[in-house]
Design a protein around this nucleic acid. Structure first.
Length: 198
DNA sequence: CCATTAAATGGCC
DNA sequence: GGCCATTTAATGG
């Protein structure tokens, strides 16, 4: 996890429960809290002009939720929507700042975390600008697998639906379904019971 | 069982 | 590749 649970609690973080479809925060609102997922799953999304959903990230246990907004004076550019029952630690911005001031190694850890995120944003952007669906999809899959301790082929189960994958790369479900099957024939991944293993 | 949701297919542009 | 319709498979009450 990004920040030690006990440290967060000692600065006054409170745990809050959420059920699927609940909103943690809305696009356009002012960031006032640091959020860290204890368990469950949250997506960051945005709806473009055509009403099509764009998913910017799907976050799970241990991840913070859009923490970068606590360092700049901007509104949230995305919604945070719960997609699997969640427990979240919530720490007011002022307490978060106090915690950083008093814990310099923590500041460095957060720098590292933010840098890594930004780095992957470059990679993802490069992939998503490809005209090839295979490149875009593999880009997302490789990104998720990069967090897995086991890097063996077909060892990582992708916990994303085809629809979510599609919304992450700006393509349609049908395209994802067909491309994933094509990738299976190329031995880039494996499909078992509809689940993708890479 | 039935309802719901996800995955898969095929036709057409 | 997208869009639409339809079928198939899996899941949960």
């Amino acid at each position: 996890m990004l920040i030690d649970t006990d440290l967060l609690l000692s600065y006054g973080a409170k745990e809050q429960s959420f059920t699927p479809l609940e909103i943690v925060f809305n696009e356009g609102s002012t960031p006032r809290y640091y959020y860290q997922i204890v368990n469950g799953k949250i997506k960051l999304n945005h709806y473009n002009g055509d009403g099509k959903e764009l998913i910017l990230a799907i976050l799970t246990s241990g991840f913070s939720v859009c923490e970068l907004l606590l360092f700049i004076d901007k509104k949230y550019p995305v919604n945070a929507v719960v997609i699997e029952e969640c427990k979240i630690l919530k720490l007011p911005k002022t307490d978060f700042e106090k915690m950083l001031d008093e814990n310099h190694t923590l500041s460095r850890d957060i720098n590292k975390f933010l840098s890594e995120r930004l780095y992957y944003k470059y990679i993802m952007l490069e992939n998503n600008l490809s005209t090839h669906a295979e490149v875009r999809i593999l880009g997302v899959l490789d990104y998720y697998k990069s967090f897995s301790p086991n890097q063996t082929l077909y060892s990582y189960e992708v916990l994303l639906t085809r629809q979510q994958l599609a919304s992450m790369i700006g393509m349609r479900v049908e395209t994802v379904i067909r491309t994933v099957k094509k990738l299976e024939k190329q031995n880039k991944l494996e499909i078992r019971r509809g689940k993708i293993y890479i």
